[in-house]
């Protein structure tokens, strides 16, 4: 059953139209990632859902759990929507300590939630425990690392048990290791709390590893949507293939243009006659070490441009290499 419904959302800044009849539905407990390049409108969608942006007057509506948030003259302000949001810049209030930061939404909503000071304290400590920050209650933002600050922001967003969790590039300010660690923690929490979540990201790896469903956006429109596995293995369009899977579009000698995934190239002993059919040997032009594998750029007279492929073996530039493509 649909939990969040965005119907024909429109948003413009001045004369620039950012979103045009954008529609999307989420079911309860789903983790959805909005993935797209800069300027694709993903943050605007998130902010419209949050109530931080007002959709255009002629826009359709947004409803959550059957309650209309915006559209047809209705607009519920952000403070009344009961949503949790984690910002890219953490947005941890520097003049409040960790406890006060997390308790703030509970205090402002104390009447609505009918909770007293003891309950606020309990819920705050529970939220901090959830993000593994127990014992940090008295610390201020400047006494915390980036990862810890983002945990505070997460605890604050979770504290009042939001109807929807919104994540605006929550991991992009963190280093690679911390990003993986906090990413999997967010996913675990989201699953254990059965919390419907929308994450905005431009990081394909993040979207693939955390989401139930990915929506790929380009210029304010849905380019494709589906499970990470489906979109990665069978990208429905060239844009999705290039953006999500890092596919390379190559022109064959015949003039035909085809997409190639760098990791589907294999070394072979067989001379030519494999995959796409009969490649002459490749001549390696450059090599980059990526940790688990090497990325190569190689020349082949069968293609008009250099071919990119990834294999585990190390080869020196120059000599010929026989490759096949596993299509």
């Amino acid at each position: 059953m649909t939990y969040l419904k965005i119907n024909a959302l429109q948003k413009s800044y001045g004369k620039t139209r950012i979103l045009e009849n954008f529609s999307l539905e989420l079911v309860k407990g789903e983790f959805l990632s909005l993935l797209g390049p800069s300027g694709s409108g993903k943050t605007t969608i998130l902010r419209c859902v949050a109530g931080l942006e007002t959709p255009d007057p002629q826009s359709g509506d947004i409803s959550l759990d059957g309650i209309k948030l915006s559209g047809e003259g209705t607009f519920t302000p952000a403070e009344k929507r009961c949503l949790g949001m984690v910002f890219q810049s953490y947005a941890v209030w520097p003049h409040m300590n960790v406890f006060e930061n997390v308790a703030f939404p509970l205090r402002t909503n104390a009447k609505r939630l009918s909770i007293d000071a003891a309950e606020i304290k309990k819920r705050t400590l529970d939220a901090l425990n959830l993000v593994r920050l127990s014992g940090y209650e008295r610390r201020y933002a400047h006494e915390l690392s980036g990862g810890q600050q983002q945990r505070v922001a997460l605890a604050r967003a979770l504290a009042m048990e939001p109807k929807l969790l919104l994540l605006d590039e929550p991991l992009s300010n963190l280093d690679a290791l911390l990003r993986e660690e906090l990413g999997s923690e967010i996913r675990k929490l989201q699953q254990s709390l059965n919390l419907t979540t929308i994450m905005v990201t431009h990081d394909q790896k993040e979207a693939l590893s955390l989401s139930d469903r990915i929506v790929v956006l380009d210029h304010g429109k849905i380019e494709a949507q589906g499970s990470p596995e489906l979109l990665y293995s069978s990208p429905p369009s060239r844009f999705v293939a290039e953006f999500l899977s890092g596919a390379q579009s190559l022109k064959l000698a015949s003039g035909e243009e085809r997409l190639f995934l760098p990791r589907r190239w294999r070394e072979t002993d067989k001379p030519s006659m494999a995959g796409v059919s009969g490649f002459p040997p490749f001549r390696i032009v450059s090599r980059i070490y990526l940790g688990k594998e090497y990325e190569y750029w190689a020349e082949n007279r069968f293609f008009s441009g250099n071919v990119r492929f990834c294999v585990r073996e190390k080869h020196d530039s120059g000599p010929s290499l026989q490759l096949e493509y596993d299509s």
């Binding site: 109530g51 931080l52 302000p77 009961c82 949503l83 949001m85 947005a91 939404p105």
Partner: peptide, 8 residues
């Protein structure tokens, strides 16, 4: 915005 979403 974080405060606004917290109900302030």
């Amino acid at each position: 915005e974080a405060a606004k979403l917290s109900g302030a």
